[in-house]
Design a protein around this nucleic acid. Sequence first.
DNA 1: CGATCTACCTGATGGC
DNA 2: TGCCATCAGGTAGATC
Length: 269
Amino acid sequence: MHERRVVDVAVTHARSVRRQPQAEFVFALRGRTITSVRRHGKFLFAELDGTDALVAHLRMSGQLRINAAADELLKHTHVVITLDNGEELRFVDPRTFGEMFVDKLDDDRPAALRSLGPDAMDSRLSAAGLHARLTAGRRVSTLKAALLDQRALAGVGNIYADEALFASSLHPKRLAASLQLDEARVLRSQLRRILKAAITARGTSFKDEGYVDAYGQLGGYSRRHKVYGRDGQPCPRCATPIEKSVIAQRGTHFCPTCQSIRDVLETPR
DNA sequence: CGATCTACCTGATGGC
DNA sequence: TGCCATCAGGTAGATC
């Protein structure tokens, strides 16, 4: 893969570039060469000549796509970055929760991402390290809330939090501070396994549209969900109906039988 | 300080 | 069929 130079930038929806003045964004990009493309947690970033980075977060409905210039513009295309081979990097985002910005690189990541915890797939994060991050300073928060806290661990969202907790036989409402080291060991390996498989399957797409890769391909991981979106259906392990309730302000799916309680804030249900 | 709540937004879905 | 209300998701910022 060749390095690509940015030859032009067009922002057609101001909200998609809201962290900085639009003109600053365009000026910081035009003429720069993309030297690598990386990820930290849910943020994607392209290094620009090794000093700045073009950062993107897709939130729920965003897509980053590579298109030929002649390809039809999808509805909700908010940013178009023209590359020196004539192709375009397009940011498409119906709900406009996603964003792009240019930021200074600070060591291994853009400065704005400094407050994020280590990436959940980072092999240097040990079980003891994960244990410390999920328990440290937490007085009353649940395991589910801790897993979703991007300052503790970056990259785990609602779907994969539920899947990892199920695979680890941990109740989402467990007090985070009650997590034992041996449980953190299991959680670490299940998180890594699930995220790896989800990435291989190009993630989770619902229905006929939504989450796609840079070439418009849908993700196939939802077929592998064991609990997410399966409330009322039998647990694949013990056949108890999967429950859904709101935990940490998020729809949360779990098996009340397989995911042991031991130590919860309140009795579920 | 940690924990919790709200705004942001639109397409899909469910009820009538 | 159509209309309307509700829901889903991640993060920043406000508030408790």
